[in-house]
Amino acid sequence: MTDYITIAMPKGRIFYDACHLLREAGFDLPNEFETTRKLILTIENSNFRFILAKPVDVATYVEYGVADIGIAGKDVILESQRNVYEMLDLGISACRMAVAGLPSRKQQSSVTKVATKYPKIATEYFKKQGKQVDIISLNGSIELAPLIGLSDYIVDIVSTGQTLRENGLVELTKIMEITSRLIVNPVSYRLKKKSIDYIIEKLKPIVEVTGVGMD
């Protein structure tokens, strides 16, 4: 019996990079892969099935084992704290988690307010700095928060920094580098070891090449 492997792919920003990487690794992804609106895709004559999920949900699908492996950003992995193997740094969709704010700002209230989509990462970071801050959770357009006085700073991912610049914000501190990772469900790894090791072995050489000169 060959094992059926379900791979959770993140829609959006990372998706194209991930598809490119998989093709390079020898996966025969059909051309309409990037344009289809289907949520479950199978490749003919193979034992691979892809599910297309919202990036923040990839780690959830993998933790519950409905997807055996997944591609997820380090930001998502850190924020969701799922019990999954983080096996490979794929080196794709590189960006950084950073603190940003207005170039000059007097803090009016006695407590620092931080708006973010990543409350756990932000809390952890400021804790390590010995600072207690108020976290305000937002779901998008984080840059708005300091502009209209909702927060003093934001914690968000920055890739080119263009959104920050256009909104008159500056990057103040880099918290960490973010890349996408290959994550694996611990049970799937045990029960479908051969197939999963095969995928990892195919990805490894390509990832190592892309990884050069990352920093």
Binding site: N83, Y85, E86, M87, L88, D89
Partner: peptide, 10 residues
Amino acid sequence: YMKNDVGFRE
């Protein structure tokens, strides 16, 4: 324990 191979290697 966290199963974080990437972090281990880093």
